[in-house]
Every structure is written in C-alpha cells, then in structure tokens.
Simulated assay, not measured.
Amino acid sequence: MATCRSMRRGAWRWPPAATPITSPFPASARRNMSMVAAVTETIIIRPATAADAADIAGMINAAFAPYLGRLKPGPSALKETAETIAPQLAPPGGGAVALCVDGTGRASAIAGTVLFKPEADDLYFGRLAVPQAQRGHGIAGALIRFVEDEARRRACAGIVLGVRIALPENQRLFVHHGFAEVSRHAHDGYPEPTWIRMRKRLTSG
C-alpha cells in the first residue's frame, strides 16, 4: 500500500464522486441563510477546483473576519486571494467545498470550504471556513469527514491541524471529531503560546 509520503511524490486523482451529506435544516435556520436563495435540504461535499479559487478566498475572508481584534496576531487567512488559493489546490495539495442543494437539485453558492496538504506521514488541513449564518448544521463536520476520507485514500497515518488558543469553541469542535492536543506553539514575536497543534490518528478500516 502506498504511504502518505510516497503518494505525495506522485500524481494523484480526486475521489471519483462527490460525497453527499444529508443535513435537513430547520425553518428558522433556512430563513437566516442569506447565501442560499432557495430552501436547502442537502449538503454536498465535492473536491475543489481552480475555478473555485475566487469563491473559496471570499468564503475564507468572510468566515475569518469576525476574529479581527480577538486574535493576536490577526488571522493570516484574511490575506488569502484567488491568486494564493489556486496553487494550494494543485496536487499534492487540494481542497473541498460544501454546496447547499435545494429540493429541485439545484446547487447554491459555496457554503463552506477547507484546504489540505500532505505533511510527512499525515494530511494537514486548514482554512476550514463556514459562514456564521450556516454554522451549527454539520457543514464543518462534513468537511472534516471529507478530509479524513481523503487521508485514508492516501494511506496517511493521521490528520493534523493548528487552532488558536483564543478560540476554545474551535478546539471543542475538533475534540468532538476525535482530535487531541499534541503541542503548543507561539507565533513569531510572541513570548507565550498562541496556537495548538492537534492530531487525529487514523486506524485501518
């Protein structure tokens, strides 16, 4: 079986089909979904392509903007543009987007996104972004599961990420999905730790 590291050196293909995640939303949530024109019934997670770069950058900027002033240093995610996202989507990196699909099968604008890349024997993911109006309905969890499936497809040993110490709600999300703290680190110029490295070990099957 190819290892995560050896697959990084070779070409690889996206999964053959999008991953449907059924996620009914209550009527109150539907009314608050400003990005979705029609009532949504299903979330579809699919691999991101270069054509999604501008939408992904916009989604990331919108999702991370509320952290300005709360995070020190400020979120580097706000520097992302279509030009910086596109190279990250090229192999061996990649990404995924979530789409809301209405009862007629028509897909809405992007409702969430994540980027990933190989890191030694693991798959690292970041820029997990879901707009505030659509949080709490399983979109982030569906994107995390997509990353886990991709890591298994690449025969990676685990999944890793970095999360800010100042965002305990994000830490709880990752703990809920099986991640555990590995170490703490400080951004350049900061004497105390500012972020946590977390990892989920993957088992076979």
Score class of each variant (00 low, 15 high):
residue 3 T to D: 14
residue 5 R to D: 12
residue 7 M to I: 13
residue 8 R to K: 12
residue 9 R to I: 00
residue 11 A to C: 07
residue 16 P to R: 13
residue 16 P to Y: 06
residue 17 A to T: 08
residue 18 A to R: 12
residue 23 S to D: 06
residue 30 R to A: 05
residue 32 N to K: 12
residue 34 S to I: 01
residue 35 M to K: 01
residue 37 A to E: 15
residue 38 A to E: 15
residue 45 I to R: 12
residue 45 I to W: 14
residue 46 R to M: 07
residue 46 R to V: 02
residue 48 A to M: 02
residue 49 T to V: 12
residue 50 A to F: 07
residue 51 A to N: 07
residue 52 D to A: 03
residue 53 A to L: 06
residue 55 D to S: 10
residue 56 I to W: 04
residue 58 G to L: 07
residue 58 G to T: 03
residue 59 M to S: 11
residue 60 I to P: 15
residue 61 N to G: 08
residue 62 A to M: 05
residue 76 S to Q: 08
residue 77 A to P: 06
residue 78 L to C: 04
residue 78 L to H: 04
residue 78 L to M: 04
residue 80 E to L: 03
residue 80 E to N: 09
residue 82 A to W: 01
residue 83 E to D: 14
residue 83 E to S: 11
residue 84 T to H: 11
residue 86 A to G: 01
residue 86 A to W: 04
residue 87 P to W: 03
residue 87 P to K: 08
residue 90 A to L: 14
residue 91 P to N: 11
residue 98 A to D: 04
residue 101 V to T: 06
residue 103 G to M: 05
residue 103 G to E: 10
residue 104 T to W: 06
residue 104 T to G: 15
residue 109 A to Y: 01
residue 113 T to K: 04
residue 114 V to M: 12
residue 118 P to H: 11
residue 118 P to M: 10
residue 119 E to M: 09
residue 120 A to L: 14
residue 126 G to E: 06
residue 131 P to I: 00
residue 132 Q to C: 04
residue 133 A to E: 15
residue 133 A to R: 01
residue 134 Q to M: 15
residue 140 A to P: 03
residue 142 A to C: 08
residue 145 R to Y: 03
residue 146 F to N: 03
residue 148 E to R: 15
residue 148 E to A: 07
residue 148 E to C: 04
residue 150 E to C: 14
residue 150 E to S: 07
residue 152 R to G: 01
residue 152 R to P: 04
residue 153 R to S: 13
residue 154 R to M: 05
residue 156 C to S: 13
residue 156 C to K: 10
residue 156 C to N: 08
residue 158 G to K: 13
residue 160 V to N: 14
residue 161 L to C: 11
residue 162 G to W: 00
residue 165 I to V: 07
residue 165 I to S: 07
residue 168 P to K: 11
residue 171 Q to I: 05
residue 173 L to Q: 12
residue 174 F to R: 13
residue 174 F to Y: 15
residue 175 V to F: 12
residue 177 H to C: 02
residue 177 H to M: 06
residue 178 G to L: 07
residue 179 F to H: 08
residue 180 A to I: 01
residue 181 E to L: 09
residue 182 V to W: 11
residue 187 H to W: 01
residue 187 H to P: 03
residue 189 G to K: 13
residue 190 Y to H: 13
residue 190 Y to T: 01
residue 192 E to C: 04
residue 194 T to D: 11
residue 199 R to P: 04
residue 200 K to G: 00
residue 202 L to T: 04
residue 202 L to N: 08
residue 203 T to P: 00
residue 205 G to L: 11
